[in-house]
Design a binder for these strands. Structure first.
Length: 385
DNA sequence: TCTGGGGTCCTAGGACCC
DNA sequence: TCTGGGGTCCTAGGACCC
């Protein structure tokens, strides 16, 4: 049976959500002028998290440095983000979508898929999607695009057509007309590198990709990816709408310095901070990690990274930090300026560590107590906000 | 102009075991 | 003494997503 999938995507999410909040405070609608949301508006190293449509028309793009956008348009309105507010907006948005179908997969903070197969007929899908989109706009104050297709890929591609506040269909019989003329870069999973490889062989459109010889495609992008690209370019995708949220497979944190640092004390302080954040996060989800990884990024954006396996899974900050410090000493000469440090853990389990008191570091109990106090303080700070 | 922060999945090569 | 092949785990690195 043919499925009916909706992909709902908030238009310029962070920017729209900030605009709604500002308007409640009696301020003008920043969606109507060139404006952007960035991490820290005062930091020259910040990049743009979301841009208004007028800003996009000037060539300002998401992920572009703020300083670059200011050069394009000095009067650009720059606002900071508010995660607490964004989470509230996201929850309200998702709950409206869920009222249309319980078979919902949240794809990110501002996107979801719903399976409407048993909820509407193909011929009234557009009417239902329009109702959903209008309901979000009229009750929450921000707009969404709804893409309709017979699978997730087509629905997602459709929601990316003209914006904002629009409903588009991309049924299988429309693939040739609506999707094949698009550039390969518009196909989901085709990024910069893949685009370069494809255009080097004269493959510019999704239609050309759809008809490409599999042998050649495999040599260009690898076997598995080739198969997926070939299916997707032909509009095929049998992945289900996953209602269960998958458990995290890794947790990481990273910090970019306001300028490049080369003093080991500064680097160690940053490593300490990210270790605290990562370890706290895994404890909160009752995880323990068996792999610790760290990386440093230099001025030229080249990265040196290391990863190591632990004998026993841990959630102790000091254990994770120690491994990271050891690896840092292996990859860094102690002189070359560093732009960014990061630390991550993976191979997560919920197993409690096997207690081998005979061999266990006697300091471990002290470390755990330190972590308990850290977690308590974090909880207090959270309660205050 | 000078590039954030948080994730997922895949591939390739080496070590080790049978 | 020299040889093969498969399976699994580990690390490094690359590409993509929002």
């Amino acid at each position: 049976m043919d499925r009916i999938i909706f992909h709902i995507d908030v238009n310029s999410a962070f920017l729209s959500w900030t605009a709604v909040k500002m308007m409640r405070e009696g301020k003008p609608d920043i969606r109507l002028v060139p404006s952007v949301v960035s991490g820290d508006p005062n930091d020259r190293r910040s990049i743009i998290t979301a841009a208004s449509i007028p800003a996009k028309k000037l060539g300002i793009k998401t992920a572009q440095p703020v300083s670059m956008a200011l050069r394009t348009y000095p009067q650009l309105v720059i606002v900071g983000g508010d995660w607490t507010w964004y989470k509230q907006c996201s929850e309200s948005f998702i709950s409206i979508c869920r009222s249309y179908s319980p078979v919902l997969q949240q794809f990110s903070i501002d996107e979801c898929f719903i399976d409407m197969s048993f909820r509407c007929k193909p011929e009234n899908a557009v009417a239902v999607a329009t109702r959903l989109k209008d309901q979000v706009r009229d009750t929450l104050g921000f707009t969404v695009n709804v893409g309709i297709g017979s699978n997730k890929l087509l629905a997602k591609m459709a929601s990316d057509f003209e914006k904002p506040d629009k409903v588009h269909t991309l049924w299988e019989n429309e693939v040739q007309e609506k999707m094949w003329p698009l550039g390969v870069r518009d196909l989901l999973w085709v990024g910069k590198k893949t685009e370069e490889r494809l255009t080097a062989y004269g493959i510019h459109t999704i239609g050309q990709l759809a008809g490409l010889d599999m042998g050649l495609l495999m040599r260009l992008v690898g076997q598995k990816f080739a198969q997926q690209l070939h299916e997707n370019a032909n509009g095929r995708d049998d992945s289900p709408v996953e209602t269960e949220r998958a458990e995290a497979k890794s947790v990481s944190a990273e910090r970019t310095f306001s300028r490049d640092y080369s003093d080991p004390k500064d680097i160690d302080r940053a490593l300490f901070n990210v270790a605290c954040i990562v370890a706290h996060r895994i404890r909160r989800h009752d995880f323990r990690a068996s792999t610790v990884s760290m990386f440093i990024k230099y001025k030229d954006f080249s990265v040196a990274q290391k990863q190591t396996s632990l004998d026993q899974p841990t959630d102790v900050t000091a254990v994770i930090l120690n491994e990271a410090r050891r690896m840092l000493a292996e990859v860094w000469d102690g002189i070359t300026p560093i732009r960014q440090v990061g630390l991550g853990v993976s191979k997560l389990t919920h197993e409690s560590a096997v207690q081998m008191s005979l061999f266990e570091d006697p300091k471990l109990e002290y470390y755990r107590e330190w972590d308990r106090q850290y977690d308590e303080q974090r909880a207090e700070i959270k309660n205050q906000t």
